[in-house]
Amino acid sequence: MKKFFSSKPFILTIGTLAIASLLPFGVSDYILGVLTTAFYFAVFSMSWDLLFGYAGEVNFGPTFLIGLGAYGAGMADSLLNLPVPVCILIGALAAVIGGVALAIPALRLTGPYLGLITLVAVLLLQQVIVIFAGVTGGEIGLSMPDVLSVNSAPNYEYALAFMTVSGAILFAISRSNFGLILQAAGQDPIAARALGFNITKHKIAAFAISALFSGLSGALLVFYLGTASVNAVVDIAIGVRVIIAAVLGGRRTIIGGAIGAIFLIVAGEILRPLGQLSTLVVAIMALIVIMVSPDGLLGMLRARRTT
């Protein structure tokens, strides 16, 4: 453990985060705004990586969990007028319940079958939001009376702190015995069971943890945006972005999810002058990266260091 804290990657990460925390003193509000969104997306991708990279669960519906967190928090705010922290906790709770509900089919299904179930969960959530438009805001989205802050700097620092803490916890989990058992269960469930591990308990816990961070991040994101809408937190396109970010950054690394998400969003901003074509160019870049380096951006960094 001691060795880990003095390792190069660790020092590099701490250094980057330290510089990142000082950014509000040097750069414009606009960059802070871009990075704020990117940091919340980073947590989405890291949570997804815990499920996929470690437990091997093909979750095509990260936005089911994100959406539950976002709408749970948003509706608590707009309908019940509860204080913001309470709303965020309600959102996180809703997401955890949703995560456990997803874990039940995951105990029986794998691969494309589970993928489809998670996809259908997103579609159903979307339908429910539209059908109960009276309380959810429907197609139009939910406008929320409260936001975290109007100013960019505090919003940025909240998001950075949240990403750092979440990333540290998820990373620690992935490197713990728990993470190793998950990985074993994902790769060879029969052997893992034969070794005496309770796979059921571990899988449910993995879904709950992933849901907790997805939900928290979704809740914080809507309190940053001041609005929750299907196309912002539930749409399948958002889920696709989360998955692509995790694979692009480097799966089974946790940190890779953050790198991928930040890369995708920052690249999208830099390519903004291309207008409509920016998404196309980002998709091409992502495809090239995963074809050339299956371990993603993090893999590329590592490869350069070893050669």
Binding site: V58, V240, I244, V247, Q276, A283, L287, P294
Partner: peptide, 17 residues
């Protein structure tokens, strides 16, 4: 299998754009 999924997913995004 995962890479085919991700690759075709990205390809779908490109076609759409």
């Amino acid at each position: 299998e995962l890479f085919v999924l991700t690759g075709t997913l990205l390809w779908g995004v490109m076609l759409q754009e």
